[in-house]
Design a protein around this nucleic acid. Structure first.
Lengths: 148, 148
DNA sequence: AATATTGATGAATATTTATGCAATTTTTAT
DNA sequence: ATAAAAATTGCATAAATATTCATCAATATT
């Protein structure tokens, strides 16, 4: 028996590589992979891993891992230089050529606080959701850019 | 209750408005809302709706609807997808590559309510005339884009 | 060192969910 | 309109999952 962390990691891997339909099925897989456990533990582990049970197009069920939230990356890796606000607009400055790429990411990951973006060469203009505060916008961007 | 479609719609609504923890709980809600049914049917309905059971941060479980499928682009030939407002700015989302063309058309046809536009790849930012209302903007765009 | 505290775990079990089947309704084809 | 086919639903129950409880190990506290 290894550590719990290793076991959780194995569960992750197995869920990624297989279409797991039930905990019992996963139990077998775990056993085959040298980590036998009971369904009780599996149930608890899966809860801890935030695994959810979904329906496939084909009609079957599958346990899936949560969409991993992007790990914040150092701001300069994304080309981020600065952010400033004016009214309901935020202006993000980037290194030359990075604006489009960053705008795309903002659209993808901050659509709840930003209703839209337009990018130039080294500048992105963000139109804030009227209900969002500047702090919320910074917080949202922080989930995928290490600002500061 | 009437049709199955209506029932599914009610399920959608209830799942959106409540943190539903079990099918039995939802069963009660359905009953209270004039759509009594059995757990069997709920199980089938939820499968049909692609509802999945997830773990909440707090530790509980919740049934959730699938993330809105990739924008049911009822693509109008102009590439228009959506419009949203924030302050004196409107953000028009378009299909990829359509923003410039659409911005041009907006400039041409709505200059009385929009003082200027900037287009990215799939987004157009419109700066509204201070004297125009959002309704007027939508009305103006409607004359040459099929909105809705 | 002895004792408490915390975290993990399995066994048993309660709870919840999925489904086979039969009855019934709705739709389609003739 | 009528027969045949397909869909819908509840009931009963099988299958799957979550949790309670007791136990044990590891770590912290006195």
């Amino acid at each position: 028996m290894k550590t719990k962390t290793q076991r959780l990691q194995l569960i992750r891997q197995l869920l990624t590589e297989n279409t797991v339909t039930s905990q019992e099925e996963l139990m077998d897989l775990m056993k085959k992979n040298g980590s036998p456990l009971t369904q009780s533990t599996l149930s608890r582990d899966m809860k801890e891993l935030n695994v959810s049970k979904t329906v496939l197009l084909g009609g079957g069920y599958r346990y899936v891992l949560p969409r991993l939230s992007p790990t914040p990356v150092k701001s300069d890796e994304k080309g981020f230089v600065s952010i400033a606000f004016s009214g309901n607009i935020a202006v993000v400055k980037t290194r030359a050529g990075y604006a489009s790429r960053l705008a795309y990411e903002i659209d993808e990951n901050a659509s709840d606080v930003v209703i839209g973006t337009v990018a130039g060469e080294d500048t992105v203009i963000l139109v804030l959701n009227e209900k969002s505060t500047r702090e919320q916008v910074v917080a949202a961007l922080s989930t995928f850019i290490k600002i500061q």
